[in-house]
Amino acid sequence: MSKLFYGLILATSCLLAVGCGSEGTTSVVEGAQQSDVDEYNRILQEEQAQMKAGMEAAAKEGIKDY
């Protein structure tokens, strides 16, 4: 019992230490050019349109839970 208890305490301590950083919030687009952000958003919209088309095609075929 004591090995399990100490193991859980150690695991919890490790998870808390990893999860707590001294840095504040950061942005993934910090330092990126606006054209790069626009290109990413364009690609994302294309992928979402393809996913929607695929889901609609699956629905027409009678495939459920897709």
Rank of each mutant, 00 (worst) to 15 (best):
K60T: 11
Q45V: 09
G62E: 09
I43Y: 06
G19S: 08
I63R: 15
G62K: 08
C14V: 13
D65N: 13
Y40D: 00
T26R: 13
C14A: 14
G54N: 13
S22R: 10
L8W: 06
Q48C: 00
E39Q: 10
G7L: 04
I63E: 10
G62L: 08
S13R: 06
F5I: 15
M51V: 12
Q48T: 05
A53T: 13
Q33M: 07
S2M: 07
K64A: 11
L10Y: 01
A49H: 09
A17H: 02
V29H: 08
T25H: 14
T26E: 09
A17K: 03
Y40L: 07
E39H: 04
N41D: 11
A57R: 12
V28K: 08
Q50L: 14
E47F: 01
S27R: 14
Q50R: 15
F5L: 15
S35M: 02
V37A: 06
V37P: 04
R42F: 07
A59R: 13
S2R: 12
A58E: 05
T25K: 15
K60H: 08
A32G: 00
Y66D: 05
E39M: 01
E47M: 05
Q45N: 12
Q45Y: 03
E39S: 10
I63F: 09
L10I: 08
S22T: 14
A53R: 14
L8F: 10
C14P: 00
G21M: 05
E46K: 08
Y40Q: 03
A11D: 03
Y40V: 06
K64S: 12
G21D: 06
G19H: 01
V28I: 08
K60L: 11
Q34F: 05
C20D: 00
E61W: 06
A53C: 04
K60D: 13
D36C: 00
V18A: 11
A57C: 02
C14T: 10
E56H: 05
D38Q: 11
Q50S: 13
T26D: 07
S22E: 08
L8A: 07
F5A: 11
G7M: 02
I63Y: 09
T26N: 06
S13F: 13
A17C: 07
M55S: 10
G19I: 00
A57Y: 04
E56W: 02
